[in-house]
């Protein structure tokens, strides 16, 4: 499995599937029994303990339960990795100020973790993980202990960090919503095995493995109503729009010149990371030849059309 530089790569799986184990293999908190781990152009599995400690500074990590030093202030928590890297007092304090600003915690610098909300604690975690300008950020269920609104603000921050600093983000989660909001690519893990992997949009619209389908169903607003679909007499189509097409009146334009009528039976229009997409199940009612010509027009416009 390879994660590209600069991308946000998500790993999704049910609890106990082995997500944390896989993520912890990346910085060798967990030693894999076989295989190699390479970050950038350094093979971590071949390093001495000392060298590994140095390489780990290039890999930031944040956690579900934040794992902050409870006896240290926000400032000292963020300073911790810098002190480990033996920066001078002046450099440490300068860098901590920058980081506090980045995660918008300037007013909370002298508080202790117990005085912060979950979202604020995770911001401290993020600042601490970014302190040594890592190339990679590992996120172990970083939003799973947070409410939906805070989750969104943390995801926005991660997206921002990825865009501004170009840091590769590898995150694991059991929430499809997280994958849909910020990931470029996704891998699905089940019982310690990667069962599906690809562009988020692709995996989302065409899930193949049963586990993937479960996750996709989590965020689909309605389960496919098989009963209802079976009772229809016209041609049933699943149409998928991606990108700007989503907002065009394509279906209307396609049927207008013909006598075909349509009914929308089910549909989603949403957004994945920055890309809008839509998926509709429609019934076309008309003569076979007219229906075929509508389908041809839709495909011409760039839609994916599937008979069901």
């Amino acid at each position: 499995m390879t994660v590209q530089k600069g991308e946000i790569f998500g790993i999704i799986g049910h609890s106990g599937a082995g997500k944390s184990t896989l993520l912890r293999c990346v910085n060798l908190l967990e030693k894999p029994t076989s295989g190699t781990v390479t970050v950038g152009d350094v093979e971590l599995t071949g390093l001495s303990e000392r060298q590994l400690q140095n390489q780990r500074r290039r890999i930031g990590m944040i956690f579900q339960h934040f794992n902050l030093l409870s006896m240290s202030t926000v400032r000292d928590n963020i300073a911790f990795p810098l002190v480990l890297a033996k920066l001078s007092k002046f450099e440490v304090s300068k860098r901590v100020d920058e980081l506090l600003k980045l995660v918008q915690l300037e007013q909370h610098a002298d508080k202790y973790p117990a005085q912060l909300s979950g979202g604020q604690k995770q911001r401290v975690g993020i600042a601490r993980a970014l302190a040594n300008n890592p190339d990679v950020l590992l996120c172990d269920e970083a939003t799973s202990a947070l409410d939906p609104q805070t989750t969104n603000s943390i995801l926005a921050l991660l997206l921002d960090i990825n865009a501004k600093l170009g840091i590769t983000i590898l995150l694991i989660t059991h929430e499809m919503n997280v994958i849909r909001s910020i990931c470029d690519r996704v891998a699905v893990i089940d019982q310690g095995e990667i069962v599906e992997m690809g562009e988020v949009l692709h995996v989302f619209l065409k899930p193949e493995h049963p586990v993937t389908r479960d996750f996709v169903a989590q965020v689909a607003d309605s389960g496919a109503n098989g009963q209802l679909l079976h009772q229809r007499t016209g041609r049933l189509l699943r149409m998928t729009y991606i990108g700007d097409l989503t907002y065009e009146p394509i279906l209307y334009n396609a049927v207008k010149p013909t006598g075909v009528q349509f009914a929308i039976l089910q549909g989603t229009v949403s957004r994945m990371k920055q890309t809008p997409y839509g998926q509709l199940i429609v019934e076309l009612i008309g003569s076979d030849s007219e229906v075929e010509s509508v389908i041809a027009v839709l495909r011409d416009e760039g839609l994916e059309v599937e008979s069901i």
Binding site: R57, F63, N67, M71
Partner: peptide
Amino acid sequence: VDRGVIEAAQAMGASKWDIVRRVLLRESR
């Protein structure tokens, strides 16, 4: 002392001595 905190320190490249001095003895004060 929370295991997770020790792990976080390891992930940041802390040596064992760093962990004793800066995490264990501090967190358990």
